[in-house]
Nucleic acid binder design. Structure first.
Lengths: 150, 150
DNA sequence: TATTGTTATACTCTATAACTATA
DNA sequence: TATAGTTATAGAGTATAACAATA
């Protein structure tokens, strides 16, 4: 922390965006470190979870759910397929598209990863108690509701 | 009883990290759009605010405060100096280092930007009322307090 | 002609090693 | 020798246009 601060009445510390970014970097970095042991990135974990909850969805749907562009999905899914965690299956009605499914190994790994992610969440927010964590989750989800202002 | 492995207890929507990331992207993107009108990035705004509160700090201090590496600071400060918003001044005691100061124009622009940032904060969290916003800020700051290294 | 997934490309952000000039 | 700032560079993450196969 740099030297003194003689005019603190309006500062970065009153901005939600500033605190939000710092907190996100901290929590995200913790998860990155945990998932590194599985040679996975957070987006790959999220992809596994979304496929698990929406078996058969096509890549465009997954891209929208992850809020990334379709081209970014290609190496991500290649990696998951190469590790036999997920599969692309040609759609019967529309042979341009692929339905996405988890393999048994993918389902099993995902179960492990969910525990890891939950523990990472708690470890990186260890200054909060359970009630505060629940409160925070509710507030964040409330922010994430209205997407029409974007 | 066969133990069911569905595990709906832990999905992405129960993870603080997931909600935190989505909220941060939303709030950050809103600020990026607002600052774009001034041809500035959030890190440049933060740099202006930190220099303003800590006039004369050296670049290593600013890098630490912004949580970026010193090399990333070079083009950032070059831009601020080229626009005459901030200046690097050789330190008298240690001629290797530069003290950083805002120009009058920098101070004046910063005053404007603080209003913009505050409005951006409120606009991108418009689903929250003032009490919830204050609550959220407190929770985030609590996360950002690290007790393992002071 | 339009769409799904893919390739190629570029632009930003970030991280690290090496260089300069001072100490 | 060690440090402050800089340069050069490489690695991610992200965004867009263009292409192939299919509709």
């Amino acid at each position: 922390m740099p030297p003194q601060n003689d005019n603190p009445e309006v500062s970065l510390d009153t901005l939600i965006g500033y605190a939000l970014r710092k907190a996100q970097l901290k929590v995200f970095q913790h998860l990155v470190n945990e998932l590194e042991k599985f040679d996975l990135r957070p987006a790959q974990f999220s992809a596994l979870a979304i496929i698990d909850q929406n078996p058969g969805l096509v890549q465009a749907d997954l891209a929208r759910a992850l809020d990334i562009e379709p081209p970014q999905l290609v190496p991500l899914l290649n990696k998951l397929e190469a590790r036999a965690l997920a599969v692309r299956v040609r759609c019967k009605p529309d042979k341009r598209a692929y339905g996405l499914f988890l393999s048994k190994a993918g389902e099993q790994l995902l179960k492990e990863l969910k525990v890891i992610a939950q523990q990472s969440d708690e470890a990186s927010t260890a200054t909060l108690d359970d009630a505060e964590r629940a409160q925070l989750l509710g507030l964040l989800q409330k922010i994430n509701r209205n997407h029409d202002c974007l």
